[in-house]
């Protein structure tokens, strides 16, 4: 759910999140998916935010309050996954190069800590400048769809 208030230069939006109540952000900070998440084709606009420093984030739909995902920034987490971003994907999200792109992977926060995992085969690419994003399916079969987080010494809080 999204409430907008107009100010002279910046449009502020209030996003009602699934996990953390109402969050305010600037409209131009919302991500717009050019290629949607598989299975969530209706939803285009999301807000990525953090509740504490580190490689984990939350991605909240701006259009559907019930839709939120936990994300991992795999490179921030120290994973040595070889994620190759194609020039076509760079262009598609309007990035000037790979240094203009943030990479995230969706996390399954299973109640069983041994089953918590992230999908490195289909990461989310988000352009820092244009705020366009897409979920890409990489052709590298070495990248696991289920990379279990116990393998990177996940600590429960």
């Amino acid at each position: 759910m999204l409430t907008m208030t107009k100010e002279p230069a910046v449009t502020t939006v209030t996003i009602n999140t699934l996990k953390h109540g109402a969050i305010e952000t600037n409209d131009d900070q919302l991500l717009t998916f050019s290629t949607p998440l598989l299975g969530f084709e209706r939803l285009k606009r999301f807000h990525i935010y953090q509740t504490r420093p580190g490689p984990t984030y939350w991605m909240q739909s701006a259009e559907e309050q019930r839709v939120a995902f936990c994300l991992l920034a795999p490179f921030q987490a120290g994973l040595e996954a070889r994620i190759v971003i194609s020039p076509a994907d760079v262009v598609d999200i309007g990035a000037t190069g790979v240094e203009d792109i943030d990479v995230y992977s969706l996390v399954v926060l299973d109640r069983d800590p041994a089953q918590r995992r992230t999908n490195l085969r289909a990461p989310i690419l988000a352009c820092r400048t244009t705020k366009r994003a897409k979920q890409v399916v990489l052709n590298d079969p070495q990248l696991p769809i289920r990379f279990f987080l116990r393998d990177i010494k996940v600590m429960e809080v």
Binding site: T51, G54, P55, T56, W58, C70, L72, A77, G78, L79, E80, A81, R82, V107, V108, L109, D110, R111, D112, Q115, R116, R117, L120, Q142, L143, P144, I145, R146, F147, F148, L149, D151, I152, K153, V154, M155, E156, V157
Partner: peptide, 22 residues
């Protein structure tokens, strides 16, 4: 939460300690 028990392929090497949200 949905619980699955599908086995995963071998992970890439490396990785630092990471704190996940609950």
């Amino acid at each position: 939460a949905v619980t699955t028990s599908a086995p995963g392929p071998a992970p890439p090497a490396g990785g630092a300690a990471t704190t996940l949200p609950t």
